[in-house]
Write a protein that binds this DNA or RNA. Sequence first.
DNA 1: GCGAACATACCGACTAGTTGGTATGTTCGC
DNA 2: GCGAACATACCAACTAGTCGGTATGTTCGC
Lengths: 212, 212
Amino acid sequence: MDDDMTSATGRPSAREKLLNAALSVIRTKGYAATTVDDLCRTAGVTKGAFFHHFKSKEDLGVAAAAWWSETTSAFFDSAPYQTISDPLERLLAYLDFRKSILAGELPEFTCLAGTMVQEVYETHPAIRDACDMSISGHAATVEAMIREAMIRYAITAEWTASSLALHIQAVIQGAFILAKAKHGAAVAAASIDHLRRYVEMLFDVGATRSAG
Amino acid sequence: MDDDMTSATGRPSAREKLLNAALSVIRTKGYAATTVDDLCRTAGVTKGAFFHHFKSKEDLGVAAAAWWSETTSAFFDSAPYQTISDPLERLLAYLDFRKSILAGELPEFTCLAGTMVQEVYETHPAIRDACDMSISGHAATVEAMIREAMIRYAITAEWTASSLALHIQAVIQGAFILAKAKHGAAVAAASIDHLRRYVEMLFDVGATRSAG
DNA sequence: GCGAACATACCGACTAGTTGGTATGTTCGC
DNA sequence: GCGAACATACCAACTAGTCGGTATGTTCGC
């Protein structure tokens, strides 16, 4: 991933402007309904610039998913919950954080990867894989927290850290769909409450108090 | 909802063929990528027939969501779990049923409403509302089971039957997204396992055995 | 340290094909 | 013989992608 998009100069390149436009426009209208001209208009660049940096619209889709991965990774890596030392507390704080960022307009907090993969999973395998990497990559960071917490609190379970991490992502993605259907974040927040309760129950929060 | 689509005659009308084509094609390619010609070709009718029955593509989208509601309602109403008298057992059997139908190709078991609303929630409010009605309508039937089970097992909780029913739908919708990203139903099944475990825990299955 | 050769970033008019939608038939049950 | 249910022919607008061209570096022999 050699991204020399700002190429030493301060102002953003056309490529970066197009990618940021893609995050915004695709999350609002979906991938198929987003035209190349839409992106150029939003980014304030011309079509020539678009096809200079991306060989096709699909190529932009793949790059947008990768760019989404990068920006969200940086976002979560610097989130406040990361400083919590106890892995279970950190995991629960992660869920609280996911709930707390359900603010503003829907396109601002919903997931690009989830939105895109839903439309293109059969028609654009390259984009699908890029979206999977984004979602699975984030799930892996959650899985690490879960694994740590399982060891710390000596949890032996039928479920795996991996499956719980993916389940958490499923709940969040599904919460976004309900939020879109009802055009409001409230349902999504309620679903994350249920998810938190489930995690607490799995780790027997309340009963268990001392670590191993 | 006056659907006289077969209009007394045996063979399906163009309208019904178009709606069934819509369920299939839109779940495969998404709404925006589906063209009117796609639908006509799949349904085996001409464009004249299309615009005779639907005043626009958006109108077809709304009708497809309503048609999806009707067919899925009939499907779940006649599902085996409905005969189980104990409401909690019925609820758990519903989840087992949802898991068991994760078979075949992805477009065959994923949700039209969830797929469509994801793309059109900002651009086509009429379709969004039709999708919401489909999802919320189904959630209401699950909510009834939960409510009944809460009374039967004298559950007093911080959560409501309504919020749990919507959470269940969120998990299922999210499971579909992960299944699409990973191009296989396995993740979805694993997520429903977690969901079942959560419901069991909420109703304290194992500890509780006698009804009130 | 200077100019030729080359590379990168970007522009915007153009095109070939597609899209949703229309206008005008035709068929056929009643 | 009339209206609902379809079919055929067509169009204006839009779409992804192309292409010739410009402006601004960068490299390097000398």
